[in-house]
Design a protein around this nucleic acid. Structure first.
Lengths: 330, 330
DNA sequence: CTGAAAGCGCTTACAG
DNA sequence: CTGAAAGCGCTTACAG
């Protein structure tokens, strides 16, 4: 490996002068700078950032510990973070903790040895998770799943708003007999989305068909079963708000089986805007995106601020976005 | 930040002795070692790996440049790599190149400055990609998309074998009138899978319905359209091998629309074994997995070997695996 | 068994 | 404008 000393030797200057020349510091003669640059080019010199890191105490790396096995959240978040940090400024050390607290601790230890400048922790579900504590030597931002310590900084999706957004869209499409087929009731994302939807219905003087949301599982199976049940008891249904895109896919199937036209007879709206599920359905599925990249970007920004000495505290929610496709309006 | 010097001072020994004590080297008195350990514990000493890296010339980091936007491949690959390397040995710097060669070059430059010990490059599709060249100072392994330089080491999925595997399964389910609804013909994955399927049919003295595979797109829409066309021209069809799970989802829909029972009348097999698509369908979809984690694991192993001075060359294919669900046999 | 010294590759005051 | 010296935090021969 070529070192700065090699470059200096070839340019006929001292190491310190070579350093200054390459780092665009003034008080170097232009002719000297040119000589050094030429030497560096000739030798294909690539500065060793490990040395700079040791010297400056900053590595320009950020740890990203994820619990999201399928990569549904991590990659968009990573993309958002890369955008926010800038490619040359910060590199991301990605660690997969697989929902395991021990594995998380282990990764945390390794990251501390590597002297990361900051840490983003991505949860597998939106529910609150236990804090890593306040005595870590670097700032931490929790993304997607907020920390249970209000002292921490957490960036989440506004699921209540997302539910309301779905209802608003159905109302604006002229729907008033709306069923809410929610997800797994043990998940905050399921109850919050349902809660936001119910509240927004109430504002309009309505309530969901059957008086309340029906909870089930995050599956197409449940989407089908739930929709069948709704059809049996409330055949007047003209709108279905589903807790996820998978549930919505099941709902579309069940409505088709029952001979209902979507969106002519019934409008269907999902949650998550998961590309693979929403584009292929008949018709394509209107859905509510959590804007995961925005969550990543905001998490990165808050982390950057904290690294610069201006930490944030508490939970900040990213506003979801409605993506209209053929399943809700014609 | 606590340094080894702090620990040494507190333990009343020299820095070198403290180093030896903590690194389990012999020629340290047990009593001294205990003293040093106690001091390190008291101070919550976390060794600075940046210093070690500078000294040893090895950082214990590996770059992973991915072009896979949705994270369909990267995360399983990362998991496989983490498994293979061992969590404490190697950390992964993940870079998202987004299919952009410039972005890739940029990330490559940053990774070189960070003195990674090795590099894995993950393609977005299985087609051959251009090599990063032979004059990189660290070993490179190409995963999923092979390099066009046979001198490089590439780990791919055996798509030909995958196609054959699908046909074998359909044959063993007693199917002989098999349609092949392939993916986008501009993708190697589409043509190779189809080719493997056709060859395996030929071995059994058969050919696909219509004489050859039909190509289209990687979408559910195409799966529906292709299947409708097959039903119109070859109503005797009793097996459908699809180029992807999305296509297979479309096929299931089309068969249901046409009143065909799956798997009683027709068996359907997909490719990729994409969890989100295969479990929710009616019935759940039999599919052929590329074993992405195995690709990641093998890529990591080959990279490790290369880092230890035993490089591999050429393309190595990971054998796919049939995952049987309700769409092919009852 | 212990510790002083050198050095990994760089940057940064500080003399000249 | 240039360069010798010190130092970032650690490990490793080498004396003692």
């Amino acid at each position: 490996m070529i070192t700065l000393a090699d470059v200096a030797r070839r340019a006929g200057v001292s190491v310190s002068t070579a350093s200054k020349a390459l780092n665009d510091r003034r008080d170097v003669a232009e002719s000297t700078r040119a000589k050094v640059r030429a030497a560096a080019d000739d030798l294909s010199f690539v500065p060793n950032r490990v040395a700079t890191s040791l010297l400056s105490g900053r590595t320009g790396t950020v740890g990203l510990i994820t619990h999201d096995l399928e990569g549904r959240f991590s990659i968009p978040l990573l993309m958002g973070a890369e955008d926010a940090f800038g490619l040359n400024k910060v590199s991301v050390l990605l660690c997969d903790a697989r929902g395991d607290r021990l594995r998380e601790q282990y990764h945390l230890g390794v990251l501390m040895e590597r002297r990361i400048d900051g840490l983003i922790v991505v949860g597998a579900r939106t529910d609150t998770r236990s804090s890593l504590g306040q005595d870590l030597p670097v700032p931490v931002v929790y993304a997607y799943a907020p920390s249970d310590d209000p002292e921490d900084c957490s960036i989440v999706s506004d699921n209540v708003r997302a539910g309301a957004l779905g209802v608003e869209h159905l109302l604006s499409a002229g729907r008033t007999r709306i069923a809410i087929i929610a997800g797994d009731r043990t998940y905050g994302a399921a109850t919050e989305r349902a809660q936001g939807a119910v509240a927004r219905l109430a504002e309009a003087g309505l309530e969901p068909l059957g008086g309340q949301p029906v909870f089930g599982a995050w599956t197409e199976d449940w989407g089908r079963a739930g929709t069948h049940a709704v059809l049996a008891r409330h055949s007047e249904v003209d709108g279905v708000l589903c807790g996820s895109d998978q549930i919505a896919r099941g709902a579309l199937d069940a409505l088709r089986d029952a001979g209902r036209e979507v969106p002519a007879d019934v409008s269907v709206v999902g949650h998550d805007d998961w590309e693979i599920l929403v584009t292929g359905s008949r018709p394509p599925l209107t859905s509510i995106s959590m804007n995961l990249e925005d969550i990543g970007r905001l998490a990165a920004r808050r982390l950057e601020e904290a690294m610069e000495g201006r930490p944030s505290h508490g939970v900040e929610a990213v506003v979801p976005r409605l993506v209209v496709r053929g399943s809700s309006v014609s």
